[in-house]
Design a protein around this nucleic acid. Structure first.
Lengths: 169, 169
DNA sequence: GAAGATTGAACACTCAATCTTT
DNA sequence: AAAGATTGAGTGTTCAATCTTC
């Protein structure tokens, strides 16, 4: 059973399952996080990256790079989180273009309260559903997918245009 | 190297890789689809579900169920696709509450033109990155994740409340 | 009243344009 | 000019409220 391009039904099943399981899984984890701690995965990941950084502070661009997000998405999110009192800007900064983002007391409190629940959720809904061998296969395969993607046409900065920076810390 | 809940660093790596690879992969596939055919994955999946259905038409709720989406998301999408001339409502319908959605000539043309490219993309960026054995493991594991999720608290319609319907065709 | 669907507001992400500091 | 970041418009998703037909 193959189509014109030689893709078998079993292969499509892998793709469909990948798409469906991700959507359901991520939604469920987000729902639980919001219900119990009032923050979603984006806020959680942001707080985690800040709190776990060497100095306890990161610039917007560093957070974006660490999480693989767009700069503007990160900027918007930091603004919303600032309005909610989860993070704030460290005023005494060296470079006038950027300021360090730090977690407020509330931000740290919220994050640490969420860690246990979130860890348990990821474990229960994802990690405990596979053996360590299966986990190793998943990691191996998905890393390969990502690597191959990095060398993909539209991802490769065209070498002629301005060119990127902000390489990982 | 384990944290307080006994989750090892290797396990976290699986989770992080899963999140990161999905985001990059899906974004890239969406970008390619839009660039070459003017539609995104959501439109592609919608057209596919309609065109490949037995009668070539589906109601909004059926599309939502088939793709695992919210009804209102589907409704909004169908409206936008109608405005763009990709789908339309079949007027001669039996049930006054719902009308069948069918693909227009443009919708079918767009879909069929995209099938080859999209299939090639999924193959190149995902399926060809794994052996059939690895693919089998992925499917096995992710199906397990989904099944376990189905029996999860917030997904289980509380049996006391009104209760859902619209079971898959 | 329940099924099927739509609507509008609130929220989140992307893209391009812009601003400031180096 | 380049680096770092912000802003605003446009688009898409969710949630709750609503509408119509069965």
């Amino acid at each position: 059973v193959t189509d014109a391009t030689g893709t078998t039904e079993e292969e499509w099943a892998v793709w469909r399952t990948f798409l469906a399981s991700y959507a359901q899984l991520v939604t469920e984890i987000d729902v639980r996080l919001r219900a119990r701690h009032g923050i979603g995965q984006a806020e959680y990941a942001t707080l985690a990256s800040i709190v776990e950084s060497p100095d306890g502070c990161l610039r917007v661009g560093q957070i974006a790079t660490a999480l693989g997000w767009e700069r503007s998405r990160t900027s918007h999110l930091i603004r919303r989180m600032t309005e909610r009192g989860l993070v704030e800007r460290d005023e005494r900064s060296v470079d006038g273009r950027a300021s360090d983002i730090i977690a407020t007391r509330l931000g740290r409190k919220t994050f640490f309260a969420a860690v246990r629940d979130h860890t348990a959720d990821v474990r229960d809904l994802f990690l405990d559903r596979m053996t360590s061998e299966e986990g190793a296969v998943m990691e191996e395969v998905l890393s390969r997918v990502t690597s191959h993607l990095a060398g993909s046409p539209s991802r490769r900065p065209s070498a002629l245009l301005p060119g990127a920076s902000e390489t990982n810390p």
